[in-house]
């Protein structure tokens, strides 16, 4: 949300470094959100399989 808000705030006239910073922030958030979701999926897969034997 912060990355996208920054990106929207940068607009069309602002310098490159601000645009890159907004995208970098977006990337930080994406990385932090995507992997834990996958971890949760894999953990529950492992639990289900171990239950099934």
């Amino acid at each position: 949300m912060i990355g996208l808000v920054l990106f929207a705030w940068v607009g069309a006239k602002k310098p490159y470094w601000q645009l890159l910073a907004a995208l970098f922030m977006f990337g930080l958030g994406v990385g932090a959100a995507m992997i834990p979701i996958m971890v949760a999926e894999l953990q529950s897969c492992g639990t289900s399989r171990s239950r099934a034997g």
């Binding site: 645009l19 995208l23 970098f24 977006f26 930080l28 958030g29 932090a32 995507m34 992997i35 834990p36």
Partner: peptide, 22 residues
């Protein structure tokens, strides 16, 4: 050339987030 900056951000947080999630 503008697009990889978000990939670099994700590259930094992905391993950290994985360890934190565990």
């Amino acid at each position: 050339l503008l697009m990889p900056s978000q990939g670099v951000g994700a590259l930094i947080t992905m391993p950290i987030a994985g360890k934190l999630a565990d």
